[in-house]
Design a protein around this nucleic acid. Structure first.
Length: 223
DNA sequence: AAAGAAAGCAACCGCATAGTT
DNA sequence: TAACTATGCGGTTGCTTTCTT
């Protein structure tokens, strides 16, 4: 049996009050992020550490953008989702001020429906079997797993404080820097052909990773 | 104006993984 | 090296708000 992450009896659940928010903000401003397990007690909160972390990351962090998504953001989400599947934290990492939860919700409530309407559904189009347990190896096709030895697919982490632990190497894939999709919704197929490109057969997707020097061109043609 | 349906979003849950002992 | 602990992630749930009839 799995041990509960916290003592249920003393834990408050549900929506956060303003007082709780303030306590959490005050504490983090004083002591910084981290040590989520001990934070609630230290901050005088009757919440589990996980809940505090989530509240901070998804709602209280000062650098959050909030508000509705722009067209460019939506476009980027669609492209990244085509490449990465439901890896919301990775996708959110490419959208400054957005959280994985926000991106996930936006996808589920807006974009997916939109794509279904257009007949361009990418739901479960990422070679991922939704019925399978969410094992990480199931999330991204093997061909897409970046190789830490490959500088094209692997970029050394530029960690934010809440990413210190960097649990997965495949989280470091640098995709947006020079990703391109041919002809809007007409995507092409293929497999990894070289260091510079890889494609998803089931996605009809052609994604090209070019070197950093191409970054300048990206802004005109891609974003 | 009221009731039901749909949509949106915040939060929880369980699992995987990295770090520590 | 195995066991344990802490953290991060994605899926899901359920409450609240908005829309439709």
């Amino acid at each position: 049996m799995r041990k509960p992450c916290c003592e249920k009896t003393e834990i408050t659940k549900g929506a956060w009050s303003k007082q709780e928010d303030q306590k959490l903000i005050d504490y983090i401003q004083k002591h910084g992020e981290g040590c989520w397990n001990s934070l609630p007690k230290a901050a005088g909160l009757r919440r589990c550490g996980k809940s505090c972390r989530l509240r901070w990351i998804n709602y209280l962090r000062p650098d959050l953008k909030r508000g509705s998504f722009g067209e460019d953001e939506e476009d980027l989400i669609i492209r990244l989702h085509a490449l990465l599947g439901n890896r919301w934290s990775l996708i959110a990492g490419r959208l400054p001020g957005r959280t994985d939860n926000e991106v996930k919700n936006y996808w589920n409530s807006h974009i997916r429906k939109k794509l279904v309407k257009m007949g361009t559904t990418t739901t479960t189009s990422t070679a991922l079997d939704p019925k399978k347990p969410h094992h990480r190896d199931n999330k991204v096709p093997l061909l897409m797993q970046p190789d830490a030895r490959n500088p094209i697919l692997f970029r050394p982490p530029a960690k934010t404080t809440d990413q210190k632990r960097a649990p997965n190497h495949d989280d470091e894939m640098d995709v947006s820097d020079s990703m391109s999709i041919n002809g809007g919704n007409q995507l092409q197929t293929g497999v990894i052909m070289s260091n510079k490109s890889f494609c998803l057969p089931d996605l009809n997707l052609d994604l090209t990773l070019s070197l950093q020097l191409a970054v300048g061109e990206r802004h005109q043609s891609d974003i």
